[in-house]
Computed example of a mutant assay.
Amino acid sequence: MRVAAVQHDIVWEDREANFSKLGPGIARAAAKGARLVVLPEMYSIGFSMNVDRISEPPDGPSTTFLVDQAATHQVWVCGSIPVKDPSSAELPYNRFVLAGPGGVAAVYDKIHPFTYGGEHEHYAAGTQRITVTVEGVRISPFVCYDLRFSDEFWALAPDTDCYLVVANWPAPRRAHWSALLVARAIENQAYVVGVNRVGTGGGLHYSGDTVVIDPLGAEIAGAPDSGEAVVYADIDPAAVEGARSRYGFLDDRR
């Protein structure tokens, strides 16, 4: 399955501007054979704590955009959104939404709010990991700060071919981003697609470093610089099975 990872300069708290920017890029990715298009964390508004202003219902405009794009181009499209779900927590969730040609296929609520940035004061913590099969590829999504917690990834490893990590990861800690993505691929013998934003938002600078890592920890595709870009890579579950058969590391966990 071909994946397109969109390294996007998010216009701060302006959904319509972001929809206008992203729509043509999703169309081009689909035309180039991408079956799954991955957008960054908070792809439509940036990593904002102004939740009273920017949070949406589960069927709000940012979810609708993903659903419409998926239906129009007959592909899968995903990214995270600030969702206020009246059926659960009082605070909104930083919610990863996966839309397919038939509508919303899966959602995942970020388990680890970023306390250093005050996210825990404005967003509720999710409680459930998920794995979903997309065109034969078993995908487990995580959001930004989740990347630092290896046990979350380990728990899903036996049934995962590819981890998606969508992020707004600031430039001062870019070395951590790159190192942790490689570590998660190596220790779980799975692909890792890390999709980060670029530009400036909320007073922070983001350097991108969007990348796709294979099950042995090698970079197979990456953004060429810190500007906007789309990174393409082919994800093959057979490569995951081959790595795990040759090196039986997962079986040695205690």
Rank of each mutant, 00 (worst) to 15 (best):
V3I: 15
V3S: 08
A4C: 03
A4T: 03
A4V: 05
A5H: 04
A5W: 01
A5D: 01
V6E: 01
Q7M: 03
Q7E: 07
Q7I: 00
H8E: 04
D9K: 09
I10N: 07
I10H: 05
I10K: 08
V11L: 06
W12A: 08
E13Y: 00
E13C: 02
E13V: 00
E13W: 00
D14M: 00
R15C: 02
R15T: 05
R15D: 01
A17S: 15
A17G: 15
N18P: 06
N18Q: 04
N18K: 01
N18A: 01
F19D: 01
F19E: 03
F19I: 06
S20V: 06
S20E: 06
S20F: 01
S20D: 12
K21R: 13
K21G: 02
K21I: 02
L22M: 14
G23Q: 09
G23A: 15
P24K: 02
P24S: 07
P24W: 01
I26T: 06
I26F: 02
A27P: 09
A27D: 12
A27E: 15
A29S: 15
A30K: 13
A31P: 08
G33N: 12
G33C: 10
G33Q: 09
A34P: 14
A34E: 09
A34F: 11
R35V: 08
R35M: 09
R35N: 12
L36G: 11
L36T: 11
L36W: 14
V37L: 13
V37G: 10
V37P: 09
V38I: 15
V38Y: 05
V38H: 05
V38T: 05
P40L: 01
E41H: 15
M42S: 10
M42A: 14
M42V: 06
M42H: 13
M42W: 04
M42F: 13
Y43V: 08
Y43L: 07
Y43C: 14
Y43I: 03
S44Y: 12
S44T: 13
S44M: 13
I45N: 03
I45E: 02
F47E: 12
F47C: 12
F47S: 15
S48G: 13
S48P: 11
M49H: 11
N50F: 08
N50P: 02
N50Q: 13
D52L: 13
D52G: 15
D52A: 13
D52F: 08
R53H: 09
R53K: 15
R53Y: 05
R53Q: 14
R53A: 14
R53M: 12
R53P: 05
I54N: 09
S55L: 02
S55M: 04
E56Y: 04
E56A: 02
P58R: 08
P58L: 06
